[in-house]
């Protein structure tokens, strides 16, 4: 079973995401910010990270920037979650290494589509 790490400071969003991801037959772990996510990735690399943009301690962008220097055994796919639709915003995330992005609030169909595009399901 493939694993998805959900990184979001909102408990509600994590819960919604978990519900959808589990229904897509993925196992789910959770992190409350970028720092927590990085620590978890160092122990065990998930197949895909669902990454929020705005978080305290370490933002999504900072997580992406820190990822190359972290000594991970593999590179997870990164799906970026954002509330902003601006092109510069999306470009910045992709340039920093995100594989895909979703707008919040997301639904099952959208997440399924993005997970298919990155090849996780």
């Amino acid at each position: 079973m493939k694993n998805c790490l959900v990184v979001d400071d909102s408990k509600v969003i994590r819960k919604v995401a978990r519900h959808i991801l589990e229904s897509l037959d993925l196992s789910v772990s959770e992190a409350v910010d970028g720092r927590d996510a990085l620590t978890q990735c160092e122990t065990s690399v998930p197949d895909v990270v669902l990454l929020d943009w705005n978080m305290p301690v370490m933002s999504g962008m900072e997580f992406l920037q820190a990822l190359p220097d972290a000594n991970l055994s593999a590179r997870p796919k990164i799906i970026f979650c954002t509330t902003e639709n601006g092109i510069s915003h999306i470009k910045a995330a992709v340039e920093a290494g995100a594989d895909e992005y979703v707008m919040k609030p997301f639904d099952r169909e959208t997440l399924e589509s993005k997970l298919t595009i990155v090849g996780v399901i």
Partner: peptide, 15 residues
Amino acid sequence: TQMDVQRGLPVGDLL
């Protein structure tokens, strides 16, 4: 719409 492009269009192709 944003919703339309979220369904199936890879972000690279969108940009």
